[in-house]
Amino acid sequence: MASIIDIKDECALHVRDFEFTYKGAPAPSLKKVTMPIAKHSITALIGPSGCGKTTLLRSFNRMHDLYPGNTYNGEIEFEGRNILGAKEDLIHLRTKIGMIFQKPTAFPMSIFDNVAYGMRLQGIKNKTELRDRVEKALQDAAIWKEVSDRLKNDANGLSGGQQQRLCIARAIAVEPEVLLFDEPTSALDPISTQGIEKLVIELKEKVSIIIVTHNMQQAARVSDYTGFMYLGELIELGHTEELFVTPKEKLTQEYITGKFG
């Protein structure tokens, strides 16, 4: 049976009995997952490919709704309501729960416009406000120094690591409560990876973070809590240092010692 620790602090999100089935798939990809996500901390999701960690991550901002035919039930509680409800305002939800992807996804526009994009969607037109918040977001994403003199340049001219930090700036510019990271460093070199990891740790002051990673060391380095998933189930959720040193489940131990994966 799964071993899920009780989180004493306030929770940012709470998943309860969540089941998810992709369109046309014979079996659910997530089976009765129950998982609390602590506020202002970093929760890492690890597990072998196909275990459902990315599927779970993409459920938090209802990304799956972009592709019709997927079915899900259960509950994901956020700000006191179940966000899986049919009446959920997805636009509002996605401004509250931001996402960073496996690869940098700079839009085909200038650096400034990239960061201002989410704010403009919310209707912020005031130039001073936009400029201030773009600068603040870029500073928070630790890329301001590198781009402050070329905000008008095409964002695709930046390096991969810079683009990923730009995407983080773009996501935090709209001041979300939660940030979802889907293997954010898988396309980056070690030095850029280090930069992103440092940034993720700094960001938890402001937001709650969930990070999917295929890299156990990364989970150990950055996260406060780690969840181990296997075949669509959450096998274990615990404090990161405890989970990696004294796992409660046999499967977890086998995975972190490299017996499979």
Partner: peptide
């Protein structure tokens, strides 16, 4: 992934 990024911003 590029389209999803824009959806993810609302």
């Amino acid at each position: 992934i590029l389209k999803e990024s824009a959806y993810a911003l609302g």
